[in-house]
């Protein structure tokens, strides 16, 4: 694990239009290989924090740095999104292609891989998570657990340096939850996991933080 910050949010202030400030002077840093869980009450801004980090929301003040450089241009944002993977809470919003293989190959194609290379990489990723048999299956025929695993595969196929996961166990049964825990435990890459499931965070992350009064605060596992 390297100590160099991969992604950092410095002195961030943010509030949705017409609402009070959600974050006021928030600082958050993710170093390479770091595995952090965020456990906080509803409405505290867990998902918003991830959206700010990935440039889906724009902070009123403060800076987002990726590998030490500010994310202030379309090019920098594209580079960030091709290097850090974000798994959304709702898999139906993450998976938009017609088949599993097409969806997993979408990211690699955007990275500039040739169609055949992208297909190979997608198949390889699906095999690595034990989902190769579903490659040609239409997305709408997958179960909730399968959709979540495929969502993670779509991001893993881009070979990211870190993963941001938003409530990965929502709507999942025990079996699917167990599969995701095993998958995350087998992966060595850095991650930020936002979840209400404290036991899940205990098994998949090393450190835990919370959001209190618009700022990051330590929290025990």
């Amino acid at each position: 694990m390297s100590d160099s910050p991969l992604l950092s949010l410095n002195n961030i202030s943010f509030g949705y239009t017409g609402s009070p400030l959600l974050f006021d002077g928030l600082d958050f840093t993710l170093t390479e290989g770091e595995q952090t869980g965020i456990h906080a009450p509803n409405g505290s801004g867990k998902t918003t924090l991830l959206r700010l980090a990935m440039g889906l929301e724009k902070a009123q003040s403060g800076t987002v740095l990726f590998q030490g450089s500010p994310v202030d241009s379309a090019q920098a944002l594209h580079h960030l999104r091709c290097t850090v993977g974000f798994v959304l809470q709702n898999s139906d919003e993450q998976l938009f292609s017609s088949t599993v293989l097409e969806d997993v190959a979408f990211g690699p194609l955007n990275l500039g891989l040739k169609p055949q290379e992208a297909r190979d990489r997608a198949l390889e990723t699906l095999e690595s998570i034990g989902m190769a048999a579903l490659a040609e299956r239409p997305i709408h025929q997958l179960s909730g657990g399968e959709k979540k695993l495929v969502s993670i595969a779509t991001v893993l196929s881009m070979r990211p340096k870190a993963l941001l996961l938003d409530e990965p166990t929502t709507f999942l049964d025990e079996k699917s939850r167990g599969r995701i825990i095993r998958l995350l435990q087998e992966m060595g890459i850095g991650r930020v996991i936002v979840s209400h499931d404290r036991d899940f965070l205990r098994q998949t992350t090393v450190s835990l933080v919370t959001i209190k009064d618009g700022r990051i605060a330590p929290c025990s596992l």
């Binding site: 993977g85 959304l88 955007n110 779509t154």
Partner: peptide, 10 residues
Amino acid sequence: RIYEAMLLRG
């Protein structure tokens, strides 16, 4: 949200 998901994957 889908458009955002697409942006997030480059």
